[in-house]
Amino acid sequence: MSHIDLRYTSHLARLGFKPEELKVFGPQVDKILHFVEQLNKVDVEGVEPTSHPLPLANVFREDKIAPSIEMEEFLQHCPSRHGSFFKVPKIIEEKS
């Protein structure tokens, strides 16, 4: 039975947790994982995974320009802006 590494997984998912939340979450998630692991009993030898629920294929759009949206209206509601840019905390140069 797997035991989830919550620290690693929550970092991958960029999810902040309070320590007390983690205490509740660990056992809950482990229990759910234990449940889904019943799938190990199913023999899937030679079975293709479902890649799409229905056999649709080759759906394209043509290379035609469609109008963009009225950005000013959208930017009005965005969390933080600088002119027409979205603003985020400074990204530190990724060098050590």
Binding site: S80, H82, S84, F85, F86, K87, V88, P89, K90, I91, E93
Partner: peptide, 15 residues
Amino acid sequence: KLIHDAAADSSLVDL
């Protein structure tokens, strides 16, 4: 695109 030097303490996003 991210622009790092146009604003102090922030990076700017142009999509």
